[in-house]
Design a protein around this nucleic acid. Sequence first.
DNA 1: ACCACAAATGAAAATGATTTTCATTTCCAT
DNA 2: ATGGAAATGAAAATCATTTTCATTTGTGGT
Lengths: 121, 121
Amino acid sequence: MTRSNPRVLSTLERAGGFASAQEIYRLMQREGESIGLTTVYRALQSLVNDKIVDVLRREDGEAIYRLCGEAHHHHLVCKGCGDTVEIEGGAIEKWAKMMAEEHGFREVGHTAEIFGLCAKC
Amino acid sequence: MTRSNPRVLSTLERAGGFASAQEIYRLMQREGESIGLTTVYRALQSLVNDKIVDVLRREDGEAIYRLCGEAHHHHLVCKGCGDTVEIEGGAIEKWAKMMAEEHGFREVGHTAEIFGLCAKC
DNA sequence: ACCACAAATGAAAATGATTTTCATTTCCAT
DNA sequence: ATGGAAATGAAAATCATTTTCATTTGTGGT
Ligand SMILES: [Zn+2]
Ligand SMILES: [Zn+2]
Ligand SMILES: [Zn+2]
Ligand SMILES: [Zn+2]
């Protein structure tokens, strides 16, 4: 993946670092960029693979993509405005490791998100 | 909603308290119960409204429903065989509350799942 | 038992996001 | 330039979920 990735990424940045594939596609169209929906999906997948963006789900199940920091981290998301704070999760890491050990699981990963209403909302 | 709700609920229980609408529908079919897919969806919505079941999202975006039991808890899921262990998450609760306070969020909820390979797999 | 009338049901069609197919175009190395 | 590999995108396929609407079922009053 090469030519489209940076265009999609820059659109995601311009969108506030938080958008669905369809939204990115529509935004690019509106701005006169020539790109196919399929390519947007593929670029996003590739960016997720490279851990440049993060994917999670809206309440209705639609996937939304967002720019993300390097290190492993978790999110505090506002249900009102979508604002996201990246938070450190040392407590979670320890908890996951301990629980996995306790039940004989290996190669464990975990997901953890906190959501609520921010001060503004 | 009346006749279908208990049937769907009991099927969800039998499924281990953790299944998607489609899975519940297929399970009921296999067991010879006569019910429509639409009705399964409606029953689940109603059960969610009544806070009898909980809804969350699989990684692929499909909605899964689970009995909203007694105590709040989290899951340790095997990527190999799907076996699920319910685990206590005191550490998570504290972490979520602390992070939310620190960033001025209110009405917070959270999700947390651990996944890996169980001893058998 | 009979008759409305509202609620519940479910088959089929509609919706909407995402994936797959496949023919065409773009890149690159020789 | 030339051939092959990678990228692109339009159109079709997939799949969960919702909507429509005609039919069935349950309830209460007579
Ligand atoms: Zn992040
Ligand atoms: Zn907010
Ligand atoms: Zn297993
Ligand atoms: Zn559980």
